[in-house]
Design a binder for these strands. Structure first.
Lengths: 350, 350
DNA sequence: TATTAGCACTCACATATAACGAGTGCTAAT
DNA sequence: ATTAGCACTCGTTATATGTGAGTGCTAATA
């Protein structure tokens, strides 16, 4: 017997290979992996007994666990993590898949609102799990035009059109009266000053520059209105598609996981928060099981990628599935999708 | 033994009372109702044997069924239907419940968008099933103001503000150029002509009257734009809340029903179509099991009521639960909610 | 004629038992 | 360090067995 205890140590080559093979096997079959059959199937030149010793070590180091005494091993979150990290640079996108994605995305390029739907639908149908997409945070959209309209004696509607064609409307209550002429003036003033900036930048700029600027003479009210309207941070929305895929996975139809699933669907904010954290990160993020740091979600993994408009990361796409997910297939899918969406939206915002 | 066959005949008083009691008991307990215990519990002065004969008759007439030979009876859809119709005028809303509804609704009266959320949330929390609400069909909203804005050399944005404060925006592509001055003129022209009419009326009126009217001289383009923008019928949306309640019901956690549930959640159009049919109907509608005429939904009932703005029915609220639903409680809840929402929206649209 | 008692029968459900098989941990030999 | 061997574990499957609440049917009863 090995003398190592629970102390952390790097795995040696053989352990590493075996761990990865076990995770692979488990993802493939969904059954706990036992020493005897495993050694045979993968033609290790090892006896089952040795395999057991190694498995025992891996269990002690928390890469594997046993559902019950005397059953085979299944990966822990940490085991999946190790597997996923090992594969990291070896993911391969096959050409067929790439073509399918391209086809499903291109067709309705023109309508921004439809893009979200078709992306999630594509992700779910290709992955056979659930596809998710976080729409661009309006904070990052670049303003092209601002217009004020009086809709009530004491209420003004601010309309902001973004380069991507997104339209934001916000109602603002006023305490003073304004004339239509003034509103027309304000509108062109605001458009002139704010055009080309993102909402995020505007929120800063309005305060810091314009208030001081003498050219904005007598337009304090315009600034007040814009500030009131734009300050409440716009909300990006989350799309999900393909939940029925998750129900098809037998291990998912089970008390706790079912509730997790419902929580994901009903409380969109939950998913939104998780995805928003991904926006900032470069490249692909994989969250496995408990790594999705939310007590309402158990037993799921998320593979996500941010996407950009120009150089600015503004949203995220991803796939949600069981921890026992086919990462090897899903990771390149999400990666490629992120890039495709970036391209799509960047083109649209010209 | 009775000599009646499957021929339809009205139930006599005793049969009627017994059928209703059986349904009541089944809704209460969820267990198949057997003759012996049932006779005891409800103190019928009947022997179990007689009860069995009656049950047999009721089964032949398709009001009851047996899950398996030699088990008690459970209601068929037709049985529930009979029960629900029998109760029809005896529903009673208790005062406490009324107060709870009032409280949960009043608080955020001011923001239209939030109303939908809080209504569905209230419905689900009071009923312990899922609450649904179909937002008012934009076709029925009354226009207060129309404004055109140029957002691209060949693209105009039409903004319609409704009395309820709903804001509709539509992009329209143009083949000809318009000047800003013309747009201003068009805007006030359209507002003047269309203000006070519903979109539905406008769709007719634009064609029939204005085109002929000489006063609309030179404003054909304005009409073209409005027509293009408003013609594509706006889509009302569906809100659901409280699906987790349905998962708490043990009989719901089962292959087929789970899939039905997922279909309801993911394919919002499905629910939308069902609810849209309710708008026209006066008062409460109850759809039981197969009466929800959609092959993707099995084992659910819907209790729905339309609501109005002024005198015009524009949307619907409802509760979705198992066929074995506590109709006695849910029906008055939905009924009252429909009226409360009508009042709320009517007040808002003044 | 409608009701009831009686009885044989059904069937879901619970419980016990046994055999099976894939797996384990541990020990001792290699 | 590896392996063979062995006793043991435990989920799974199959079988039998009893129980209880239920039924349908028949014949007697009011």
């Amino acid at each position: 017997m090995k003398t190592d205890t629970l102390t952390e140590r790097p795995l040696d080559d053989r352990e590493s290979a075996i761990l990865n093979a076990i995770v692979y096997e488990y993802i493939l079959t969904g059954k706990a992996v036992g020493s005897r059959s495993f050694v045979q199937k993968y033609s290790f030149s090892l006896s089952p007994a040795t395999m057991r010793n190694i498995m025992f070590d891996l269990e002690r180091m928390d890469y594997l666990m046993q559902p019950h005494t005397s059953s085979g091993r299944i990966p822990t979150d940490k085991g999946y993590r190790y597997y996923v990290d090992s594969l990291l640079d070896n993911y391969h996108m096959d050409y067929d898949q790439e073509k399918i994605i391209e086809e499903k995305l291109i067709q309705r390029e023109m309508q921004l609102e439809k893009v979200f739907e078709s992306v999630t639908r594509m992700l779910s149908s290709v992955s056979n799990y659930a596809g998710v997409m976080l729409s661009p945070n309006p904070d990052f959209t670049v303003v092209k035009l601002i217009e004020l309209i009086q809709i009530e004696s004491n209420e003004v509607l601010l309309i902001a059109v973004s380069r991507t064609g997104l339209i934001l409307t916000r109602r603002v209550n006023l305490s003073v009266r304004v004339t239509p002429d003034e509103l027309v003036d304000y509108s062109s003033f605001l458009t002139g000053e704010l055009c080309g900036y993102s909402l995020q930048e505007i929120k800063g700029r309005i305060f810091e520059n314009l208030r001081l600027d003498r050219t904005s003479n007598n337009r304090e009210l315009a600034l007040d209105i814009a500030q009131l309207a734009l300050n409440e941070s716009g909300d990006s929305s989350v799309n999900i598609d393909g939940i029925e895929n998750l129900l098809k996975i037998p291990e998912m139809v089970e008390e706790q996981r079912l509730h997790s699933l419902l929580n994901i669907i009903e409380e969109k904010n939950l998913l939104k928060n998780i995805l928003e954290k991904q926006i900032e990160k470069e490249g692909i993020t994989i969250l496995i099981g408990e790594e999705i740091d939310n007590e309402k979600v158990t037993g799921y993994s998320l593979v996500a990628s941010s996407y950009r408009i120009g150089n600015k990361p503004v949203g995220a796409v991803g796939v949600i599935g069981p921890t026992r997910m086919d990462y090897e297939k899903v990771v390149p899918l999400v990666d490629y999708t992120g890039k495709a969406v970036s391209g799509l939206l960047t083109r649209m915002s010209r």
